[in-house]
Design a protein around this nucleic acid. Structure first.
Lengths: 250, 250
DNA sequence: ACCTGAACACCGTTCAAGT
DNA sequence: ACCTGAACACCGTTCAAGT
């Protein structure tokens, strides 16, 4: 699952260029698109090799010419399901990274099945690396070194992912008929019933004061923005420190 | 997968208390322990209902008396594989949350299969909620409101998760013979070969200047600590702002 | 009440064979 | 070179039957 597989080369357009033989009826892009359609409609559980093949009008074994195994297919799906990152166009690093993180989270909310794959796979495909590139680019003008930029992006990515998990899992952003708890309120009720105030003092105090009662707010911009600003404030503080130090040396 | 299932009640000790009939030869704890042993040894792929049953010396169908289905079992595993959170004992909120986040990440590094489950499941079991409780408790003395505390913890959780994913996926922390890319250096090499400097200007510039060459550092304390401090600086800035405002009102 | 045996409808993946 | 048909060794899950 964590192995960076040969199929990665194909993701980057390094398709073998054969001379002879019948014209291929498939390619990696068509297979991936079919698999994504199934995942969007039925979730990851619906994505079986034979379901994908059926949708393409082909025998299941035909897929193995393009994909080493099913894990390969999942990795390719997780990359190509991601749209291009927002355009940097003239934004400050802070405004851009805010938009970038929000867009990142929105993708995960629209395609929750990505959560199950991305938590396990490093960015190695063209799309996810483009996202990484743009975020690093936005920090280009700052005095941070490469490692610091990288860790900043890691923190933002993690926040987007955890927020999306929470929203999706509690069903707060849930579309009708979707898997997930009926609502954050129900989640709260279940916890309230089960939590022992002795063992979970802070959490149960918060719950009885209504934290989780109104927790559909988790999806709302205000709440997401708060945590995001927390992170960006940290970055800004660091930049200010760095800048000051440079200035001192003059 | 995201459904909060009836098995949750059982996680909380709400086992049915039967009167008559043969004494049970199994219980949820034993099943979970067996499944975790398999996951530790062979990864999540090795955890099949029949593998778990075999390890317990029982027919596979016996498990269905304790667990609704396999997804249920995974949810229970993901909770009970988590050890108790660090002890708060006299630490400042900042020191405690730093230790908490680091411990969080270390668990994920020790049991990478948790990554595949936790990215998809909200905390609903006794262990993960205990972690949540302790983190909120540490923020108890600060002037943050409940929602702010909650989002702070979300951001820290996300950072731990993404850091662990990155470390694990690039194999930087890999034990011998484990799944994963052989090393971060190899990951870098693959990317270097495939990245078009035109399409990925910042990333390829960083790579040729050696960012990913020395990227085993990702695991090292220094690098992890940097991102963590970034987050905590953000929290601290917010707390300072809140405190000042209160002071002004006097 | 608890566990089992047999059975069902699937999986992912292989291999030799066809064109 | 590409696709297929048949086959293999598994899955998760059901149900009726045993004690």
């Amino acid at each position: 699952m964590a192995q960076l597989p040969p199929v990665v080369a194909r993701m980057w357009g390094r398709e073998p260029v054969p001379r002879r033989g019948p014209r291929p009826r498939l390619d990696l892009a068509a297979i991936t698109a079919a698999a994504i359609e199934i995942a969007d409609a039925e979730g990851l559980a619906g994505v079986s090799m034979s379901a994908v093949a059926t949708r393409l009008g082909v025998a299941p074994m035909a897929l193995y010419r393009y994909v080493g195994n099913k894990d390969d297919l999942l990795i390719v799906m997780a990359d190509s399901a991601v749209p291009p990152p927002p355009d940097p166009g003239g934004l400050t690093w802070r405004d851009y990274l805010a938009a970038w993180t929000r867009a990142n989270r929105d993708i995960l909310l629209a395609r929750p099945w990505l959560l199950s794959i991305q938590g396990d796979t490093p960015p190695a495909g063209p799309q996810r690396l483009r996202w990484l590139d743009r975020a690093l680019q936005a920090l280009g003008e700052t005095p941070l070194d490469d490692g610091e930029k990288f860790n900043t992006v890691t923190a933002l990515t993690g926040y987007a992912l955890t927020s999306a998990t929470l929203v999706h899992a509690t069903g707060a952003g849930g579309r009708e008929g979707e898997a997930g708890i009926a609502g954050a309120a129900e989640y709260g009720e279940i916890l309230a019933e089960v939590l022992d105030p002795q063992a979970y003092p802070t959490l149960s105090a918060m719950m009885s004061s209504g934290l989780l009662g109104r927790s559909e707010d988790w999806v709302e911009d205000a709440d997401f923005t708060f945590g995001l600003d927390l992170l960006l404030d940290g970055v800004e503080a660091l930049i200010r420190r760095r800048t000051r130090r440079r200035h001192d040396r003059k």
